[in-house]
């Protein structure tokens, strides 16, 4: 069990000694049960930090935001920025470093082990009829504060699927880490939903996805929340290519439009398949994309498909090592090729 005070002390200490310029963490939100991301810059703010089963946000997104901001302001802060990171978040940070988005010494990782737990899913909680104002860990249980007093539920009943299936609920890459390494504690078989889905035949699979992609409203929340979707210009925003006084009419006319922006099925599916490809070997299954989707598109299925393919066919594990090459920028002599004629 992690003592929240240890995390606060760590953050306070780092800020007091001026070792970091800020700490990205979680705080209690002004309303409701869920934690929310916060960036603190003074030692006094350390007591605001919280750690509970609603810390689902992948904060590495804010490292990306920070980097973009520094690049725009041409600022060199000198000191690193600290971040509270779960196992999956730490893997996201490793992927970003693999891609040279920032250097190891530019981040200070306060690792948080999920131990026997993980984050909860609000939908599963609602299905249990609980309306809580506060949630916390207690060994194997989640404890909720409700209007009717304290309620307990076994963690595995309302835990996110990815946490149940998590193979490494521990941030291997860290500067300091709180909690024990419980690697190998899988509470459910990995890729279970994917396996079930793949039992359907191709026709049924298409009908399923057709219905899903018909619904997507192209709000791009999935892209905005994803730490790996950091491109300054996304291939699906063909209108975002810079136009200046020197851009000729010819150039404008010949601009490639890979995908239309209209939210129709064909364009939606092209967007999502492109995104799945661009995330292959990079997505670390934080499942933030699926969580924020306003129309419940099951994006995890797509990401899981790519993840399992990379793992089974190419022995590739995303976010495992900073020095490892990217999935699609490397190969093995015996990569499968039966499909090639």
């Amino acid at each position: 069990m992690i003592n929240i005070q240890d995390m606060r002390d760590t953050a306070r200490d780092l800020l007091t000694k001026n070792e970091v310029r800020a700490v990205i963490g979680y705080r209690r939100s002004s309303s409701g049960m869920n934690a929310e991301p916060v960036v603190i810059t003074t030692p006094e703010q350390a007591d605001e930090l919280v750690w509970d089963p609603t810390c689902f946000h992948n904060l590495s997104l804010y490292l990306v935001e920070d980097r973009k901001f520094l690049a725009h302001t041409r600022n060199n802060p000198g000191r690193p920025i600290a971040i509270v990171a779960k196992g999956c978040d730490a893997r996201a940070i490793v992927v970003l470093m693999q891609e040279h988005y920032f250097k190891r010494e530019e981040v200070y990782i306060i690792g948080m082990s999920c131990e026997g737990s993980g984050v909860l899913v609000e939908r599963k909680l609602a299905a249990n009829g609980i309306q809580a104002t506060n949630a916390s860990f207690d060994g194997d249980d989640y404890v909720f504060t409700t209007a009717q007093g304290e309620k307990r539920l076994p963690a595995r009943e309302i835990m996110a699927d990815r946490c149940l299936e998590c193979r490494i609920p521990y941030p291997r890459e860290h500067n300091v880490v709180l909690g024990e390494d419980k690697t190998g504690r899988e509470l459910a078989e990995p890729f279970a939903a994917l396996k079930r889905f793949e039992e359907r035949d191709a026709g049924e699979r298409w009908i399923f996805w057709e219905r899903q992609f018909d619904r997507c409203i192209r709000c791009f929340a999935c892209r905005s929340v994803c730490p790996m979707c950091y491109c300054e210009e996304c291939v699906v925003d063909s209108i975002s290519f810079p136009v200046n006084a020197q851009t000729t009419a010819e150039e404008k006319a010949n601009r490639v439009r890979w995908i239309e922006r209209s939210a129709v099925r064909s364009e939606n599916i092209t967007y999502h398949l492109t995104r799945a490809m661009h995330l292959a070997g990079r997505c670390i299954d934080c499942n933030e994309c699926e969580r924020v989707c306003p129309v419940n598109i099951p994006l995890r299925l797509l990401n899981n498909k790519m993840e399992r393919e990379a793992r089974e066919q190419f022995g590739y594990e995303p976010g495992a090592s900073i020095g490892a090459p990217a999935l699609v920028a490397s190969f093995l002599d015996n990569d499968p090729e039966k499909f090639i004629r």
Binding site: L273, E309, V328, A329, D333
Partner: peptide, 28 residues
Amino acid sequence: FLARRKIHLVKELLGFVGVEPDRFRMSW
């Protein structure tokens, strides 16, 4: 070598969403 890996993924993905596997092909 890079193509082989990338194209394998594309092929899998297309099949996964239910596009007929015969619509996409690679050859040497």
